[in-house]
Computed example of a mutant assay.
Amino acid sequence: MCVGDIQWDDAVALLARHGLRLNHVAAGETIPGSYWGEPEAGIIANDVYVRDDTPIHSMLHESCHLIVLPPERRAQVHTDATDSVPEEDATCYLQIVLAGQLPGVGSARLMADMDAWGYTYRLGSTQAWFEQDADDARRWLVERALLPSLEAAAP
């Protein structure tokens, strides 16, 4: 599922709740700050860049990289947000949670798209990781007040 498949205003509102600006890049144009290259999302400080052909999982993943960072680190990001394993795990977990808040997407669809793109987890699928092996990521997010509580975040 790609950005062009959902309502733009829904995505803008979701990211704005986390202090991020979603920027639309025209078809065929280079996406600023894209780590993986087009059509994958790009990030620079508080800005997320996408085209209509950018996968939703990419938009959410890169956005969550920014969300998990403290403001002073976020301001310094250009293209590559982190090399921290706990931050990467928290990012993956949070993108699944946020997909559930994005009309027309949902967590189940996002996890299937993550698997199709090539995310890999030791239990064999994104859903198995999220449901059975992500306690550390969930705790990390709760400790930083990015999830309200372990109970609220449980799958």
Rank of each mutant, 00 (worst) to 15 (best):
E72D: 13
G124Y: 04
P32T: 03
H78V: 04
G100V: 02
T79L: 14
R109C: 10
L141N: 03
Q76P: 02
D113Q: 13
R109G: 04
G42V: 10
A108T: 14
I31Q: 04
V3P: 12
S107K: 12
A90P: 11
L146S: 05
A134E: 10
V77Y: 07
Y49P: 02
Y121N: 08
D136L: 06
P155D: 03
T120C: 12
L69T: 02
L22R: 05
Q132W: 05
P148K: 05
H65L: 09
H65N: 11
Q7C: 08
M59E: 01
L150W: 00
D113I: 02
I43P: 00
E87T: 01
S107I: 00
D53M: 06
H57E: 12
H61N: 07
D115F: 09
L69D: 04
S34A: 14
W8S: 02
E87R: 13
A90W: 04
D136C: 05
A137L: 09
A90T: 04
G106Y: 13
R21H: 07
G124S: 03
E40W: 15
W36A: 14
L123N: 07
D113P: 07
G124A: 05
A137H: 05
E143A: 11
A116M: 10
R139N: 11
M59T: 02
V12M: 02
P32D: 06
V50Q: 01
S107F: 02
R51D: 12
L15I: 05
H24R: 15
M111A: 08
D5I: 06
T91C: 14
V12F: 01
G124E: 06
S84F: 09
A75E: 15
G19K: 06
D136H: 11
T79H: 06
